[in-house]
């Protein structure tokens, strides 16, 4: 199983139409990767499906960077009892 970071980056690449190696942890979804508001909604939906979790929309959409998303998703997975590859 891939790590949380790898899975987050794979989904980000798919939704935003980017190559994997273009995505860095410190990148902002909107400023650096060019995510439009509609794509932010899609990203949240895809992360929920990928990890089998439910995220609070306000908290999820407040996350700005790829690294922030990894951290946030890891935390939600732990709270909701979802096993992860470290």
């Amino acid at each position: 199983m891939a790590t949380v970071e790898e899975r987050v980056k794979a989904i980000t690449a798919r939704v935003l139409g980017l190559e994997l190696d273009e995505i860095k942890s410190e990148h902002s979804f909107t400023q650096d990767l060019g995510a439009e508001s509609v794509q932010s909604i899609e990203l949240v939906a895809m992360f929920e499906e990928e990890f089998g979790i439910e995220m609070d929309e306000d908290a999820a959409l407040a996350v700005e960077t790829v690294g922030g998303a990894v951290e946030f998703i890891t935390q939600v997975c732990r709270q909701q009892g979802v096993e992860l590859e470290e």
Partner: peptide, 15 residues
């Protein structure tokens, strides 16, 4: 509902 790209999504939520 936030109807986006032809499907119902959670969108930006209630706030």
């Amino acid at each position: 509902a936030w109807f986006v790209e032809g499907v119902v999504t959670k969108g930006f939520g209630r706030t």
